[in-house]
Design a protein around this nucleic acid. Structure first.
Lengths: 144, 144
DNA sequence: TACAATCATATTGTATACAATTTAATTATA
DNA sequence: TATAATTAAATTGTATACAATATGATTGTA
């Protein structure tokens, strides 16, 4: 393909990635509205439902987000009483995020969201699995 | 898979899509900095390099963006003299975006960006092609 | 032809993202 | 052990995104 051909929207891999990501996140909205979470807040809670306790840096490693994004998100989740923010006593630089009981209870309300989302995506099991593998292969390259 | 298993970051298709999209856009940054464009401005210019003239609604259909996002982006591109914004005489509701000569000249400076980006992605031709097809299959489902 | 409905864009408000910088704490080292 | 270097979060500034609403133009229709 010529250089100028490659410079078209339909010939760039990044564009459908960017558009798909946004469109799927829009599909989440009605489900997430029911439990009063944004997508970013949702993926944060997903990590916390699993880990219970984590500092901002580690959380950012999981989510590919930095403190500039996470600080305001975490403050909002704290206002909603889903998490607590407290400094580590061992190392005062670290902010420990821990899930509250209210936050833990939210998991039960969220548990059917993945199934609902699967229904919004027109890929079969195999296609979804292929896509998943390709995306994680790319992601592995970006780590660090 | 159990419902609660699905509620993990590594079991949701949307998350790697969201993370990959952001990480690739970050990879564009040094190349786009050289021609003083953000990613959103870049994909806007890509459409204009091809179409030369288009209204906001149509542009939004290509980019999966609405006027709330595009209006400020287009004003910035106009400030940089890459495009002109003018109302259609046939239908004053339509804002016609047209590329300037300066804007058209930018295409030459941008033409090697796709090749540079390909080098940042650790997928071979076949994998990239598979990924591309899966993403466009998903996207087709979101149109409208 | 009034005027209701629709349409295209702009505006407002909220929530990310992220680069760059700042602040405060900890660690390494002269 | 002072202090330089490093680290973790927070802050600042800029640029999206998008829902909801407003505005002005056009179209459909009673």
């Amino acid at each position: 393909m010529k250089e100028l051909e490659k410079l078209k929207l339909e010939n760039q891999l990044c564009f459908p990635l960017y558009a798909c990501s946004k469109e799927i996140i829009k599909k989440y909205k009605p489900f997430l509205d029911e439990i009063d979470l944004t997508y970013t807040q949702y993926i944060t809670m997903i990590v916390l439902w699993d880990k219970k306790e984590i500092n901002v840096k580690e959380l950012g490693n999981y989510l590919y987000l930095d403190s500039g994004t996470l600080t305001p998100v975490l403050k909002k989740l704290e206002n909603k009483k889903y998490i607590k923010r407290s400094r580590s006593k061992k190392d005062e630089r670290n902010l420990i995020i821990s899930i509250t009981e209210v936050g833990m209870n939210l998991k039960n309300k969220a548990k059917n969201i993945p199934s609902k989302m699967s229904n919004c995506i027109n890929l079969n099991q195999e296609e979804a699995s292929d896509l998943y593998k390709l995306l994680y292969k790319m992601l592995s390259n970006f780590k660090n």
